[in-house]
Design a protein around this nucleic acid. Structure first.
Length: 576
RNA sequence: GCGGCUGUAGUCUAGUCUGGUUAGGACUUGGGCCUUCCAAGCCUACGACCCGGGUUCAAAUCCCGGCAGCCGCACCA
């Protein structure tokens, strides 16, 4: 199986291996080895080039440990959890809500664990497998819990996503961007989920790296300034509708996808497009990716449209590597409610609006003595109440009953006057919507390894055909034969290249063929070979990994040519 | 978390059933010889019984527990 070959080479040559190996390992944790760490960094750098440089977003970094309040507001403390129950006899574990819904066909969403436990015993729900009793319901939360501080009074969690770290300082970010939408903020970092039983290698980790962008937009304007440039680009879309009809994904242009209402907005399609472009540039070809829309049933309650970028893998089938969602205003709204900070944005109208409206003007000389201590509270409610309704009631019934929490206050004609006021409204405060491309970097690194792995039968070699700008080692330097004179010249060249900033490796072990094979295997795009002629003519051979072609170039030109090759300013065949 | 299968150098594997010499081989890797461009050959070195307990004079081998991997079930904001 190709999968096993890739993982074996990755382990052998220092890309990836499971963590804590000498203590037998722990499922869901992986190390990046010497080459893997460089590769991952190169991919991250390219990602930053896409999102920070080209899109103009800015990066922030926030803590991986978060206090409970944040994750309470985001819904993770309550919702990132599953009610579980276990059979007392056979120890089979079930989702408590699922088993109830299945057995007695009753919707139990939102019920507490106690209520679920009660239903299980009242309805005599037994283990479907062996017919024995089930335990009381408990919550399994997928977050790693910890305690903050020496006394351990404050509960904290390892963050389950980097996104929350961007929503929390929204007010400061908004100010940084001088109050104007749209703007984007990115964060690259670790996130943690204590999966019940992760068993898909690097596909399901308990500690993993996310690269997320949160793009804050005006809900009324989800257009994109560059949409015209990309509307002709083709995407392979697997819409919810097609999935339900059990059809096949369709190739469609960005423009048509929008016109036909398959994708909900320009900005969302634009994000799909740059995701595809990014994947292509790191060596994952279009043929193995598709965009799959979330079905209404699987969509998170806060999203109105969500597309997964999936890559085909031999072992796991289609795997989500990027999620691109329209998260709407869910998070900012929720944090506003929980924190009492106003996380809205003021949107100025093109033209100020003249608005005539009815306002309630309290008659304080009567108002104060009547309501005494409750007066301030009542005044506050009256500011935002529908004045017309109040006026109508007062005119017709000579009174208006105002409900505040559990109390009813009787508003009489003497308490209030009504005035027509005219005011200029320059804009309004709104919650921005959030478009979120979220990259699972570990899955992406794995996909890159999987899809760049090349079995070249003609030349009897297997190697990672990594794009040259993300290859961990940029150039290998060899003496043709392991002779003192050639060794010395090769070492000199290697050191010179390192001095000039290239990641260069020297190898004199075995035969020249063996050295090329080792170099190819880890995806080094170019190799320099010093032979006897080099001593006389100051020229060396440069070899192209992908087609084994060779050229002779001056030693003094190596760095310049290499730089041009790596940056794609020069094609190998055009070397003179 | 449950059940089944599996666990010997970096990799692949012999040995395990039927306990018994220094755990054998191949590939890889390091050093050397040879070699004027694609994993050749020769010499040489390094390197392993998943962990813990038990049975036994003696455990890679038998038993128990744990851990990990694979497969199935369950889970997967």
């Amino acid at each position: 199986m190709k999968h096993d070959k890739v993982m074996n080479v990755a382990k052998k040559r220092g890309f990836l291996w499971s963590s804590f190996e000498i203590y037998a390992g722990v499922a869901g944790f992986y190390d990046y080895g010497p080459l893997g760490a460089i590769l991952k960094n190169s991919i991250i750098n390219k990602w930053k080039n896409f999102y920070i440089v080209k899109e103009g977003f800015y990066e922030i970094e926030s803590p991986t440990v978060m206090p409970e309040e944040v994750l309470k507001a985001s819904g993770h403390v309550d919702n990132f959890t599953d009610p579980m129950t276990e059979c007392k006899e056979c120890l089979e574990v079930y989702r408590a809500d699922h088993i109830i819904e299945e057995m007695i066909n009753r919707d139990v969403e939102g019920l507490s664990n106690e209520e679920l436990t009660q239903i299980i015993s009242e309805e005599k729900i037994l283990c479907p497998r062996c017919g024995n009793h089930l335990t009381r319901v408990w919550n399994y939360n997928l977050m790693f819990q910890t305690l903050i501080g020496a006394k351990g009074k404050k509960t904290g969690y390892m963050r389950p996503e980097t996104a929350q770290g961007i929503f929390i300082p929204f007010k400061r970010l908004l100010r940084f961007f001088r109050g104007k939408l749209p703007f984007g903020v990115v964060q690259v970092g670790k996130a943690y989920r204590n999966e019940i039983s992760p068993r898909q290698g690097v596909i399901r980790l308990r500690e993993f790296t996310q690269a997320e962008a949160e793009i804050f937009v005006n809900p009324e304007d989800k257009t994109h300034e560059k949409f015209d440039e990309i509307k002709g680009k083709m995407l392979k879309l697997y819409s919810g509708e097609v999935q339900l009809a059990e059809g096949e994904p369709v190739e469609i242009s960005a423009g048509d996808a929008l016109d036909e209402g398959i994708v909900s907005s320009q900005i969302l399609i634009y994000q799909l497009y740059i995701a595809q472009k990014f994947l292509r540039e790191i060596g994952i070809p279009d043929e193995v990716i598709r965009f799959r829309q979330h079905l209404p049933t699987e969509m998170a309650h806060y999203a109105i449209d969500c597309w997964d970028v999936e890559v085909y893998t031999e072992r796991y089938g289609w795997v989500e590597i990027i999620g691109i969602a329209d998260r709407t205003d869910f998070d900012l709204k929720s944090h506003t409610e929980h924190s009492n900070e106003d996380l809205r944005v003021f949107i100025e109208y093109d033209e100020p609006k003249q608005i005539k409206k009815l306002a309630i003007k309290p008659n304080m000389s009567k108002f104060g003595p009547s309501f005494k201590g409750d007066a301030p509270k009542i005044l506050k409610v009256l500011e935002n109440i529908d004045a017309k309704g109040v006026k109508k009631s007062i005119e017709n019934d000579k009174m208006f009953n105002l409900q505040i929490e559990d109390n009813t206050f009787e508003l009489l004609p003497e308490h209030v006057n009504f005035v027509e006021i005219e005011e200029v409204v320059r804009g309004e405060k709104i919650f921005p919507h959030v478009i979120e491309p979220s990259y699972g970097l570990d899955r992406i690194v794995f996909s890159v390894l999987l899809h760049t792995f090349t079995e070249d039968e003609e030349n009897e070699r297997e190697y990672f055909k990594l794009p040259k700008d993300i290859a961990p080692v940029e150039v290998s330097v060899f003496p043709l034969l392991n002779k003192e004179q050639l060794r010395e010249e090769a070492l000199k060249i290697k050191n010179d290249l390192r001095e000039k900033g290239f990641i260069a490796e020297f190898d004199a072990s075995g035969t020249i063929g063996r050295r090329y094979a080792r170099s190819d295997e880890i995806g080094v795009p170019y190799a320099i070979t010093v032979d006897h002629d080099s001593i006389d003519d100051n020229k060396v051979t440069i070899r192209n990994r992908d087609n084994l072609k060779q050229k002779r170039i001056l030693i003094s030109d190596i760095a310049g040519i290499l730089d041009s090759l790596l940056k794609s300013r020069l094609e190998f065949d055009d070397i003179n």
